[in-house]
Design a protein around this nucleic acid. Structure first.
Lengths: 194, 194, 194, 194
DNA sequence: CATGAATGAGAGTTCATTCAT
DNA sequence: GATGAATGAACTCTCATTCAT
């Protein structure tokens, strides 16, 4: 596959991403993507076989960018509490963003394609996040910023709260105030105030 | 519509519930339900107009039964911590149950039909649960069993953790051990150990 | 079939007539009639087998009443021109009446069931009208009121004009003014002015 | 949509026209047309969305051809009476033609879709015909061929007679003899015999 | 007689997928 | 590579008609 093809593939994925954001995963048809891309029906099949394949490729694109975001955050020179606060602030923004957000599509996809093995996108990303937070907490505990909590369990707890609010925001709605309260609650459970 | 019809309606809902458990919400067609019920194509339309209507009725059935469960729990004579522990134990069972569980269908439905107003099933149930836990915590705080936490925020936190684990269990999987850890973490954040 | 049954039959026909007026012939289903009559689905079949049978019975009912109307007109003591004018006036009313008028249903029915033999409702009624007008014209010619036209051809001509305006009123619309012009044109072709 | 598509569209319309002639308007289903065209179920939807759309397109095709017929007639060098006679002869042929004639379908369509505004196919065609006849009559009156009748009312009268016979031919039947009588009657009402 | 639940045929419509050009 | 016409499977939904009660 030549360079041109790779560009076209990327173009399709970029457009398809918008479609998935707009309609979730299950509602998206090959027709939808063909129309959004302004290419021919048959043309799409030269690059991808199904919406499933397209979605997985979109996720991969997504993952690469997200990694970078994480990376940039961590390079900051700051206390564990500050970094965690920063991370939560980022999450809040993500949580409340109505548009431009693949959350629903991702859930819909993984409901249908719940991974069997260990290695899979959604789990990997989740565990990576847990791991990073865990390290943060460990650092915070060690330098006396944080209470002496179990780093792994606490990290995982934070991620489940976020996950819970994420799904709530897409099903029953959630307010910025509630997110703030929850994140405050998390921080208070960690930071030793003098 | 006579008594007989009501029975038939209930029969359809019972069968349809199984179908939704099996396939989620979006994958279910009227044809699926017709076939599962062993009735004729047109027959189903005598009772329900769409899978959406059927699903909402299934949810209602479900809600009534769940209410009872809650009720029975609360009537127990026990300390706040005991009742909470009981509740969490129940949740664990639910969380880990692979079959017989509408979670995925409910999410799929409410992704598409995210309620606008306040009054709606998923939000109402969530808020009811929050409210019950809140009262429990308040009682626990008052009688010195629990730390002096903010009852509302803490109750909501518990529910978001549960929600997060619920969705995780359907997308990336979760182990009983992790659920235990999380629930222990919650209890430790509340109960004053001597 | 007892007296009660006959009453029920008449009731159904009366209601069905309204339905045919409302929706034409082809659009009417057994279901429509059942619902309009507030009887059971099976119940209707005890009296009639199809919308076709019902429609034919409605037409028969209609025919009896129409005959009476004609009869009453003819008993008038007046000149041929006066009676004809009266008849045309009646036709104008009918023509312009938007509601309460089976015209469309009748056309739709006879398009599909164009009678083969001589004896059939629509033709019989048409020929009867032609015949009455023919007699009128003959009388008018004989007593010197009318020009010496061919009574049969002229009578038929009048009826075709009316038929043409009837169908026009249901497809492209027609105004009272145009109907007046046409009827005036007809009368002027007949009456000898001094 | 390329040239090929236009040809296919025309092919479909040609075949559909036959179907409408055969079965009228209301009886025709997408399936009927699909089968008559020997194309696939979904294929038809590439070109047309409904029988209504197809029918309107058939009418348009029809209208273009009809216009030409009119045009050719008018270019004749002849007296007004001759041209009118020619027109009526054409109408007679049309009237008596059992097959190859959209009359019933047109009526059925416009019963259901009686146009609101002025500009619409059936009315436009009718008024055009009225207008042409009106001009003919005016010419005939001016050159002393015809009696001094009101051109507009008389033209309209001729068209209503034709319309009446058209609908009669489709509901109760009509003979060539009767058509001849009527057309003779019309001509006698116009032409001044010496 | 009367009811109305039940059936099943049939119409409409949408898309994934293929394939000749 | 790219196109887009064509196919056919799958679903939705509506009624005429029957039949047990």
């Amino acid at each position: 596959m030549g360079e041109k093809s790779i560009q076209k593939k990327e173009y399709i994925l970029t457009v398809a991403r918008e479609v998935f954001i707009e309609k979730g995963y299950k509602n998206v048809t090959m027709k939808d993507i063909v129309e959004a891309c302004n290419i021919s029906r048959g043309g799409l099949y030269l690059y991808f076989e199904s919406t499933k394949e397209i979605f997985l490729n979109v996720l991969q694109m997504e993952a690469q960018e997200t990694d970078d975001v994480f990376a940039s955050e961590i390079t900051e020179e700051a206390g564990a509490g500050d970094i965690l606060a920063l991370f939560l602030k980022e999450q809040k923004k993500e949580l409340l963003r109505k548009k431009n957000n693949l959350t629903v599509a991702i859930y819909e996809y993984f409901f249908e394609n719940k991974p069997k093995g260990k290695a899979n996108l959604i789990r990997t990303q989740f565990e990576e996040a847990v791991s990073i937070i865990e390290q943060l907490i460990r650092a915070g505990v060690e330098n006396g910023e944080f209470y002496n909590v179990d780093p792994e369990v606490t990290a995982r707890n934070i991620m489940y709260v976020i996950e819970g609010m994420k799904v709530a925001s897409k099903t029953m709605g959630i307010t910025g105030e509630i997110v703030d309260q929850q994140f405050l609650h998390i921080m208070q459970g960690l930071i030793i105030e003098e």
